[in-house]
Amino acid sequence: MTVGELCKTLDLTPFSVADEDRPISGGYIGDLLSWVMGRAESDQVWITIMSNQNIVAVATLADVAMILLAEGVCPDEGVANIAASRGINLYGSKLPAFELATRIGSLI
């Protein structure tokens, strides 16, 4: 499953589309950025409700496949542009994190 396929299947809202062909290997849910930095793995979907600019740096450094904002959260002003300029996939969904995780789990 790729980022683009996931977006289509779950009808996600694209905020920054940087690499739709990036494969997804799993997922990680978390809002404490140090926790995410230390535990999220490369190519995972990172599901969070954090919307500030720091999520772009964390996603870059942890090398996740995409950031997925749950619960209808939108990125703070300017964050989508920063994500795009850094090559980070940033999407959103109205669904809660648990619901997203179970659906992604059944798809990959």
Partner: peptide, 16 residues
């Protein structure tokens, strides 16, 4: 509120 301050910074630095 920005997602920091979990007390994981220095331990993460040591671990890595």
């Amino acid at each position: 509120t920005l997602g920091f301050g979990a007390g994981m910074g220095l331990p993460n630095m040591k671990r890595n």
